[in-house]
Protein backbone atom coordinates (compact mmCIF):
# COMPACT_ATOMS: atom_id res chain seq x y z
CA UNK A 1 0.00 0.00 0.00
CA UNK A 2 1.37 3.32 -0.99
CA UNK A 3 1.04 6.16 1.43
CA UNK A 4 0.06 9.51 0.00
CA UNK A 5 2.83 12.06 -0.01
CA UNK A 6 3.16 14.11 3.14
CA UNK A 7 2.17 17.29 1.39
CA UNK A 8 -0.96 15.67 0.05
CA UNK A 9 -1.83 14.30 3.41
CA UNK A 10 -1.28 17.64 5.09
CA UNK A 11 -3.20 19.55 2.47
CA UNK A 12 -6.11 17.16 2.64
CA UNK A 13 -6.46 17.73 6.38
CA UNK A 14 -9.67 19.41 7.40
CA UNK A 15 -7.56 22.31 8.67
CA UNK A 16 -7.16 23.35 5.05
CA UNK A 17 -10.09 21.95 3.18
CA UNK A 18 -12.72 21.98 5.87
CA UNK A 19 -14.92 19.25 7.10
CA UNK A 20 -17.72 17.70 5.11
CA UNK A 21 -21.02 18.60 6.70
CA UNK A 22 -24.09 16.41 6.59
CA UNK A 23 -27.76 17.31 6.72
CA UNK A 24 -27.68 17.35 10.51
CA UNK A 25 -26.81 20.67 12.17
CA UNK A 26 -23.07 21.20 12.15
CA UNK A 27 -22.04 22.00 15.70
CA UNK A 28 -18.79 23.88 16.21
CA UNK A 29 -17.00 21.88 18.87
CA UNK A 30 -13.41 21.74 20.01
CA UNK A 31 -12.47 19.50 17.07
CA UNK A 32 -13.81 21.85 14.50
CA UNK A 33 -12.62 25.27 15.69
CA UNK A 34 -9.07 26.28 14.85
CA UNK A 35 -7.28 29.28 16.28
CA UNK A 36 -4.16 31.24 15.44
CA UNK A 37 -2.93 34.71 16.36
CA UNK A 38 -3.66 37.50 13.94
CA UNK A 39 -1.18 40.09 12.73
CA UNK A 40 -2.33 42.35 15.55
CA UNK A 41 -1.79 39.48 17.94
CA UNK A 42 1.82 39.22 16.81
CA UNK A 43 2.08 42.99 17.29
CA UNK A 44 0.83 42.47 20.82
CA UNK A 45 3.62 39.95 21.40
CA UNK A 46 6.13 42.59 20.30
CA UNK A 47 4.50 44.99 22.79
CA UNK A 48 4.82 42.38 25.52
CA UNK A 49 8.52 41.91 24.82
CA UNK A 50 9.05 45.65 24.91
CA UNK A 51 7.25 45.93 28.25
CA UNK A 52 9.25 43.01 29.57
CA UNK A 53 12.47 44.72 28.53
CA UNK A 54 11.43 47.91 30.34
CA UNK A 55 10.59 45.92 33.48
CA UNK A 56 13.88 44.02 33.25
CA UNK A 57 16.13 47.02 32.69
CA UNK A 58 14.56 49.06 35.47
CA UNK A 59 13.93 46.00 37.62
CA UNK A 60 10.49 47.42 38.23
CA UNK A 61 8.06 45.02 39.79
CA UNK A 62 4.91 46.83 38.78
CA UNK A 63 6.08 46.94 35.18
CA UNK A 64 6.67 43.21 35.50
CA UNK A 65 3.19 42.80 36.91
CA UNK A 66 1.65 44.78 34.03
CA UNK A 67 3.62 42.72 31.52
CA UNK A 68 2.53 39.47 33.10
CA UNK A 69 -1.05 40.68 33.29
CA UNK A 70 -1.14 41.57 29.61
CA UNK A 71 0.60 38.30 28.71
CA UNK A 72 -2.04 36.52 30.70
CA UNK A 73 -4.78 38.53 28.96
CA UNK A 74 -3.26 37.48 25.65
CA UNK A 75 -3.35 33.86 26.73
CA UNK A 76 -6.91 34.01 28.10
CA UNK A 77 -8.09 35.65 24.89
CA UNK A 78 -7.51 32.29 23.18
CA UNK A 79 -10.31 30.84 25.26
CA UNK A 80 -12.56 33.84 24.75
CA UNK A 81 -12.07 33.79 21.00
CA UNK A 82 -12.81 30.08 20.81
CA UNK A 83 -15.82 30.74 22.97
CA UNK A 84 -17.12 33.26 20.47
CA UNK A 85 -17.65 30.38 18.02
CA UNK A 86 -17.96 27.44 20.34
CA UNK A 87 -21.31 25.67 20.36
CA UNK A 88 -22.79 27.44 17.36
CA UNK A 89 -24.70 25.10 15.12
CA UNK A 90 -25.06 25.70 11.41
CA UNK A 91 -27.55 24.20 9.06
CA UNK A 92 -27.95 24.50 5.36
CA UNK A 93 -31.16 26.09 4.22
CA UNK A 94 -32.99 26.11 0.89
CA UNK A 95 -31.34 27.05 -2.32
CA UNK A 96 -32.98 28.14 -5.53
CA UNK A 97 -31.79 27.37 -9.01
CA UNK A 98 -30.31 30.33 -10.87
CA UNK A 99 -29.39 31.18 -14.42
CA UNK A 100 -25.77 31.09 -15.38
CA UNK A 101 -23.96 34.33 -14.55
CA UNK A 102 -26.20 35.09 -11.61
CA UNK A 103 -25.03 34.73 -8.03
CA UNK A 104 -26.48 31.65 -6.38
CA UNK A 105 -27.69 32.35 -2.87
CA UNK A 106 -27.22 29.75 -0.18
CA UNK A 107 -29.06 30.31 3.04
CA UNK A 108 -27.46 29.14 6.26
CA UNK A 109 -29.23 29.06 9.58
CA UNK A 110 -27.06 29.65 12.60
CA UNK A 111 -28.28 28.80 16.04
CA UNK A 112 -26.67 30.03 19.24
CA UNK A 113 -27.65 27.70 22.08
CA UNK A 114 -25.30 29.42 24.53
CA UNK A 115 -25.96 31.99 27.22
CA UNK A 116 -23.66 34.57 25.71
CA UNK A 117 -24.38 36.64 22.66
CA UNK A 118 -21.91 36.21 19.81
CA UNK A 119 -20.87 39.75 19.07
CA UNK A 120 -18.84 39.27 16.00
CA UNK A 121 -19.13 36.29 13.71
CA UNK A 122 -17.89 36.55 10.19
CA UNK A 123 -19.15 34.00 7.77
CA UNK A 124 -17.53 33.81 4.38
CA UNK A 125 -18.21 32.00 1.19
CA UNK A 126 -16.93 34.27 -1.53
CA UNK A 127 -17.69 37.49 0.26
CA UNK A 128 -17.98 37.84 3.99
CA UNK A 129 -20.97 38.71 6.11
CA UNK A 130 -20.83 39.95 9.69
CA UNK A 131 -23.36 38.67 12.13
CA UNK A 132 -24.32 39.26 15.68
CA UNK A 133 -26.26 36.43 17.22
CA UNK A 134 -27.99 37.07 20.53
CA UNK A 135 -27.94 34.54 23.34
CA UNK A 136 -30.27 31.61 22.63
CA UNK A 137 -30.96 33.28 19.32
CA UNK A 138 -30.91 32.39 15.69
CA UNK A 139 -29.68 34.14 12.61
CA UNK A 140 -29.96 33.39 8.94
CA UNK A 141 -27.56 34.54 6.36
CA UNK A 142 -27.53 34.21 2.61
CA UNK A 143 -24.17 33.77 1.02
CA UNK A 144 -23.69 34.22 -2.66
CA UNK A 145 -21.55 32.35 -5.07
CA UNK A 146 -21.25 33.50 -8.66
CA UNK A 147 -22.05 30.94 -11.32
CA UNK A 148 -20.55 30.75 -14.75
CA UNK A 149 -21.66 27.57 -16.42
CA UNK A 150 -24.95 25.73 -16.61
CA UNK A 151 -25.20 22.42 -14.83
CA UNK A 152 -24.60 21.60 -11.22
CA UNK A 153 -22.72 24.35 -9.41
CA UNK A 154 -20.82 23.41 -6.30
CA UNK A 155 -19.96 26.25 -3.95
CA UNK A 156 -16.71 25.95 -2.02
CA UNK A 157 -16.16 25.84 1.69
CA UNK A 158 -17.84 28.16 4.11
CA UNK A 159 -15.64 29.68 6.77
CA UNK A 160 -17.06 30.81 10.06
CA UNK A 161 -14.60 33.04 11.89
CA UNK A 162 -14.37 35.43 14.79
CA UNK A 163 -11.74 37.72 16.24
CA UNK A 164 -13.82 38.73 19.21
CA UNK A 165 -13.01 40.01 21.85
CA UNK A 166 -9.61 41.66 21.32
CA UNK A 167 -8.74 40.92 17.73
CA UNK A 168 -5.52 39.26 18.79
CA UNK A 169 -6.62 35.80 17.72
CA UNK A 170 -8.77 34.53 14.93
CA UNK A 171 -10.82 31.42 15.51
CA UNK A 172 -12.29 29.81 12.46
CA UNK A 173 -13.93 26.69 11.23
CA UNK A 174 -13.92 25.67 7.57
CA UNK A 175 -17.04 23.73 6.60
CA UNK A 176 -17.84 22.02 3.35
CA UNK A 177 -21.57 22.08 3.22
CA UNK A 178 -23.02 20.33 0.22
CA UNK A 179 -23.82 23.65 -1.37
CA UNK A 180 -25.05 22.43 -4.72
CA UNK A 181 -27.30 24.33 -6.98
CA UNK A 182 -28.62 23.74 -10.46
CA UNK A 183 -27.64 26.43 -12.91
CA UNK A 184 -29.86 26.93 -15.92
CA UNK A 185 -28.40 28.19 -19.14
CA UNK A 186 -28.26 31.90 -19.50
CA UNK A 187 -31.34 33.01 -21.46
CA UNK A 188 -30.48 34.53 -24.82
CA UNK A 189 -30.55 38.28 -24.78
CA UNK A 190 -31.91 38.57 -28.25
CA UNK A 191 -35.61 38.08 -28.62
CA UNK A 192 -36.53 35.81 -31.44
CA UNK A 193 -39.98 34.69 -32.51
CA UNK A 194 -41.35 31.33 -31.47
CA UNK A 195 -40.81 28.62 -34.00
CA UNK A 196 -43.60 28.04 -36.45
CA UNK A 197 -45.40 24.86 -35.69
CA UNK A 198 -46.64 22.90 -38.66
CA UNK A 199 -50.44 23.23 -38.68
CA UNK A 200 -52.05 20.01 -37.72
CA UNK A 201 -55.11 19.00 -39.67
CA UNK A 202 -58.18 19.89 -37.63
CA UNK A 203 -60.05 16.83 -36.61
CA UNK A 204 -63.70 16.41 -37.34
CA UNK A 205 -66.17 18.16 -35.03
CA UNK A 206 -63.63 20.46 -33.54
CA UNK A 207 -63.49 24.04 -34.41
CA UNK A 208 -60.10 25.40 -35.25
CA UNK A 209 -60.71 28.36 -33.05
CA UNK A 210 -61.64 26.07 -30.25
CA UNK A 211 -58.04 25.76 -29.21
CA UNK A 212 -58.44 28.49 -26.65
CA UNK A 213 -62.04 27.95 -25.82
CA UNK A 214 -63.02 27.75 -22.24
CA UNK A 215 -63.87 24.20 -21.42
CA UNK A 216 -64.51 24.06 -17.68
CA UNK A 217 -63.00 24.27 -14.22
CA UNK A 218 -60.90 21.73 -12.48
CA UNK A 219 -59.46 21.65 -8.95
CA UNK A 220 -56.01 23.22 -8.95
CA UNK A 221 -53.15 20.84 -9.21
CA UNK A 222 -49.55 21.58 -8.59
CA UNK A 223 -47.94 22.59 -11.83
CA UNK A 224 -50.97 24.40 -13.27
CA UNK A 225 -50.07 27.80 -14.57
CA UNK A 226 -50.87 30.69 -12.29
CA UNK A 227 -52.41 32.45 -15.24
CA UNK A 228 -55.08 29.78 -15.48
CA UNK A 229 -56.23 30.04 -11.88
CA UNK A 230 -59.81 31.16 -11.57
CA UNK A 231 -59.13 34.10 -9.28
CA UNK A 232 -62.74 35.19 -9.02
CA UNK A 233 -63.72 31.88 -7.52
CA UNK A 234 -60.75 31.99 -5.24
CA UNK A 235 -61.70 35.49 -4.08
CA UNK A 236 -65.20 34.27 -3.27
CA UNK A 237 -63.65 31.64 -1.10
CA UNK A 238 -64.78 28.73 -3.21
CA UNK A 239 -61.34 27.20 -3.45
CA UNK A 240 -58.62 27.16 -6.02
CA UNK A 241 -59.65 26.13 -9.49
CA UNK A 242 -57.82 26.08 -12.73
CA UNK A 243 -59.53 27.03 -15.94
CA UNK A 244 -59.40 24.32 -18.56
CA UNK A 245 -59.34 25.12 -22.19
CA UNK A 246 -60.51 22.83 -24.91
CA UNK A 247 -58.80 22.41 -28.18
CA UNK A 248 -55.92 20.45 -26.93
CA UNK A 249 -52.93 20.04 -29.09
CA UNK A 250 -54.25 21.77 -32.15
CA UNK A 251 -52.20 24.96 -31.75
CA UNK A 252 -49.62 23.75 -29.27
CA UNK A 253 -46.25 25.33 -29.43
CA UNK A 254 -43.31 23.02 -29.80
CA UNK A 255 -40.01 24.31 -28.58
CA UNK A 256 -37.54 22.18 -30.41
CA UNK A 257 -33.79 22.15 -30.13
CA UNK A 258 -33.53 21.58 -33.85
CA UNK A 259 -35.43 24.73 -34.60
CA UNK A 260 -33.07 27.00 -32.73
CA UNK A 261 -30.42 28.77 -34.63
CA UNK A 262 -27.05 29.35 -33.14
CA UNK A 263 -23.45 28.55 -33.71
CA UNK A 264 -22.90 26.38 -30.76
CA UNK A 265 -24.82 24.11 -28.47
CA UNK A 266 -24.68 26.67 -25.70
CA UNK A 267 -26.16 29.36 -27.86
CA UNK A 268 -28.93 27.05 -28.92
CA UNK A 269 -29.65 26.08 -25.34
CA UNK A 270 -29.73 29.76 -24.40
CA UNK A 271 -32.22 30.38 -27.14
CA UNK A 272 -34.34 27.46 -25.98
CA UNK A 273 -34.19 28.73 -22.41
CA UNK A 274 -35.38 32.11 -23.52
CA UNK A 275 -38.30 30.54 -25.36
CA UNK A 276 -39.32 28.53 -22.30
CA UNK A 277 -39.32 31.65 -20.19
CA UNK A 278 -41.21 33.68 -22.76
CA UNK A 279 -43.77 30.95 -23.26
CA UNK A 280 -44.28 30.70 -19.55
CA UNK A 281 -44.72 34.45 -19.32
CA UNK A 282 -47.32 34.51 -22.06
CA UNK A 283 -49.00 31.49 -20.54
CA UNK A 284 -49.32 29.27 -23.53
CA UNK A 285 -48.94 25.55 -23.49
CA UNK A 286 -45.76 24.33 -25.01
CA UNK A 287 -44.08 21.07 -25.74
CA UNK A 288 -40.38 20.67 -25.32
CA UNK A 289 -38.03 18.71 -27.46
CA UNK A 290 -34.40 18.06 -26.90
CA UNK A 291 -32.41 15.35 -28.62
CA UNK A 292 -33.37 12.29 -26.66
CA UNK A 293 -36.14 14.00 -24.69
CA UNK A 294 -39.65 14.92 -25.52
CA UNK A 295 -42.00 16.57 -23.04
CA UNK A 296 -45.66 16.80 -24.04
CA UNK A 297 -47.22 20.23 -24.18
CA UNK A 298 -48.14 21.69 -20.82
CA UNK A 299 -47.59 24.84 -18.88
CA UNK A 300 -46.97 25.89 -15.29
CA UNK A 301 -44.06 26.04 -12.86
CA UNK A 302 -43.51 22.32 -12.72
CA UNK A 303 -43.38 21.97 -16.46
CA UNK A 304 -41.05 24.91 -16.94
CA UNK A 305 -38.70 23.76 -14.22
CA UNK A 306 -38.57 20.32 -15.84
CA UNK A 307 -37.67 21.95 -19.13
CA UNK A 308 -35.04 24.19 -17.57
CA UNK A 309 -33.58 21.29 -15.64
CA UNK A 310 -33.28 19.32 -18.82
CA UNK A 311 -31.55 22.29 -20.40
CA UNK A 312 -29.17 22.67 -17.49
CA UNK A 313 -28.13 19.06 -17.55
CA UNK A 314 -28.08 18.58 -21.35
Amino acid sequence: MKWPALKERVMSHRFFIGEQATIAPYVLNHNRVFILPTQRGLGFVVLLSLLFLIAFVYNNNLAYLLTFLLASVFFITILHTVKSLFGLSLQKGQTKAVFAGEAAGFTLHINNPGDTPRHHVRITLEAGEYLMIPAHGKASVTLYSTTKKRGWHQAGKVTVASTYPLGLFRAWSPIRFDLKVLVYPKPALQESPFPQTAPVEPQQGFSKKGADDFYGLQTYQAGDSIKHIHWKAFAKGLGVFSKQYSGGSSADLWLDYDQTHGHSTEERLSQLCRWVLDAERVGVRYGFVLPGLRLPPDCGALHSSMCLEALALF
Partner: peptide
Protein backbone atom coordinates in the same frame (compact mmCIF):
# COMPACT_ATOMS: atom_id res chain seq x y z
CA UNK B 1 -10.95 39.20 30.95
CA UNK B 2 -8.60 41.16 33.21
CA UNK B 3 -10.01 39.55 36.34
CA UNK B 4 -9.66 36.12 34.77
CA UNK B 5 -6.12 36.99 33.73
CA UNK B 6 -5.09 38.03 37.26
CA UNK B 7 -4.42 34.53 38.69
CA UNK B 8 -2.01 33.64 35.90
CA UNK B 9 -0.37 37.06 36.19
CA UNK B 10 0.16 36.49 39.92
CA UNK B 11 1.61 33.02 39.31
CA UNK B 12 3.98 34.47 36.73
Amino acid sequence: IVVQALPIAVVL
